[in-house]
Design a binder for these strands. Structure first.
Length: 481
RNA sequence: UCCUCUUUAGCUCAGCUGGUUAGAGCACCUGACUGUUAAUCAGGGGGUCCUUGGUUCGAGCCCAAGAAGAGGAGCCA
């Protein structure tokens, strides 16, 4: 039976003959004995291999440095050193050496920027091992949650012709000859000649398609790649990221918020239960990293405590109007510390959101009922409101440290109101005929939201740069590996 | 896209007011050491000082342009 290092450390009884395969993290030694620490990705911990030179020819150890991959046959025994268990080698087979002169990773702390430049090898580091294991757990928990709640997993297209969503700049998909593109008589690019016979792009959201499926299947969710060609250079934006978009028939905005909170708590709890050692490792990493920071820039609580805090407290729910009033009465506003003016109708800026979440409530906050003027066409209008202060049933879930983690709304199901709004916003009714058909035939109240998966992974792992929570980050000017 | 900062050995960094042969720790190699834990000790090799142009007798250091990276902002998830 194949055993991994996690099993060796936690389950395998002592004095068992074992086979260990993994990559060397570190090597120490003296004349008689060498110590290798090995990791195989199954655990944040390493197992120590003891090599006595009277058993193993010293020649075999030549060239085995950090990064080498080995197969070790030996016996699992109680360690004389600080770790509980270790393996005394009986034989060693070298799968591959890693030339010390050129192998980039060393048994020392590297900067995250350096490791990012070597993203092809970073799965071998303790930090990224932990991050990617947690990422897996969260992804698995997403499916588990929705499955248990009666949702269907649906796949929406990655190549779309829709350009009505307005979620951001899009990547064009084309097979046209860019050297000599076909032109129409007016001198425009002739997309009739293109592969699909029309202009197509990578999806910026699966929401509109998910709505079609929800209005038939009831409760659905998507979990897939999403693309935005925005020139965003921040620690929380990617050009290619994974989005989770549940869409539910017969859910109003309250149901939508309840679901969002329950869902996020479920997946965080899952990671706490399934990756305690990885989280402990990352917690320690974060503490080390923040040692050099000023007190006020450090995280207010350790990682695991922060996650438990989120589970133990209900998210604060306030309306946009209430949020504006809190901000108007806040110290930074009165002392004119905000860069952006606070008044009803503005889109809340990062500094405002951060004040509400990190200073005022000190926990996750859900803001609802945003001004209609700053939100998308498909969001349901609230009734009977003061002229000039119309709102829509939109909600954002704000998390400390990363800001908006979820954006959602109840959708406008009324055909007349929807088309009126689309016309006002210059969105083509003809192109969106398929979307409007759901309102024309058997329309139903429904809601949904989108959650940026990487932002969730960021929050749970405490990683501050979103490029460090996806194996192959795509950002402006960077598509390496 | 805007603002700020950064770029010197494989990595992390130092390098004074512009001055002659550019340094340290770690990594790597060689050797020492009776079980190490960031092992330790001794020695060795290793440099396009981001690029281009300029100022100067002389530039790692000053000036200009550009590139890349980081942080923040905007856009958003």
């Amino acid at each position: 039976m194949k055993t991994n290092i996690h099993q060796l450390l936690t389950q395998t009884p002592l004095d068992t003959e074992v086979v260990v395969k993994g990559w060397v993290r570190n090597r120490r030694g003296s004349k008689q004995v060498a110590f290798l620490t090995l990791n195989d990705g199954s655990t944040p911990h390493t197992i120590q291999i003891v090599v006595n030179f009277d058993t193993i020819a010293e020649e075999i150890l030549k060239g085995i440095t950090t990064g080498a991959c080995l197969k070790v046959v030996g016996k699992l025994i109680a360690s004389q050193g600080q770790q509980a268990k270790e393996v005394v080698a009986q034989s060693i087979e070298v799968y591959g050496l890693a030339d010390g002169e050129t192998y980039p990773l060393q048994p020392r702390k590297h900067s995250l920027e350096f490791i990012r430049e070597n993203a092809h090898l970073r799965a071998r580091t303790a930090t990224f091992g932990a991050v990617f294991r947690i990422r897996h757990s969260l992804a698995f928990a997403v499916h588990e949650y929705f499955n248990k709640e009666g949702f269907y997993y649906v796949n929406t297209p990655i190549i779309t012709a829709s350009d009505a969503e307005g979620a951001g700049q899009m990547f064009r998909v084309t097979t046209l000859d860019l050297q000599q593109p076909p032109q129409t008589e007016e001198g425009q690019l002739d997309f009739a000649e293109d592969f699909f016979g029309r202009s197509t792009n990578l999806t910026v959201s699966g929401q509109l398609e998910a709505e079609l499926l929800a209005l038939g299947l009831g409760k659905v969710y998507t979990f897939g790649p999403t693309f935005r060609a925005e020139n965003s250079n921040t620690t929380r934006h990617l050009s290619e990221f994974w989005m989770i978009e549940p869409e539910m028939a017969f859910y109003n905005i309250q149901d939508n918020m309840d679901l969002a909170e329950d869902f996020v708590k479920y997946v965080i709890r899952y990671a706490l239960q399934h990756n305690p050692e990885d989280l402990q490792f990352l917690e320690k990493r974060l503490l080390d990293e923040e040692k050099n920071k000023k007190q006020e820039e450090r995280s207010p609580m350790p990682l695991v405590e922060k996650l438990n805090f989120v589970l133990d407290h209900s998210f604060e729910r306030i309306t946009y109007t209430e949020a504006i009033n809190i901000l108007l009465n806040s110290k930074p506003h009165k002392k004119k510390k905000f860069t952006y003016e606070v008044k009803w109708g503005i889109d809340l800026q990062s500094e405002h959101e951060r004040y509400l979440v990190e200073k005022h409530f000190k926990k996750p906050v859900i803001i609802v009922d945003y001004p209609k003027a700053i939100k998308a066409f498909y969001m349901k209008s609230n009734d009977q409101e003061e002229v000039g202060k119309e709102t829509v049933r939109a909600m954002d879930v704000l998390f400390p440290g990363i800001g908006e983690i979820i954006g959602g709304s109840q959708r406008e199901e009324n055909y007349e109101k929807l088309t009126e709004r689309m016309t006002a916003m210059n969105i083509s009714l003809e192109e969106m005929w398929w979307y409007l058909d759901t309102r024309r035939f058997g329309t139903a109240p429904h809601s949904g939201f989108g959650l940026g998966f990487e932002r969730l992974v960021q929050f749970v792992t405490g990683m501050t740069n979103i490029r460090d929570v996806i194996p192959f980050p795509r950002t402006p000017k960077n598509a390496d590996f």
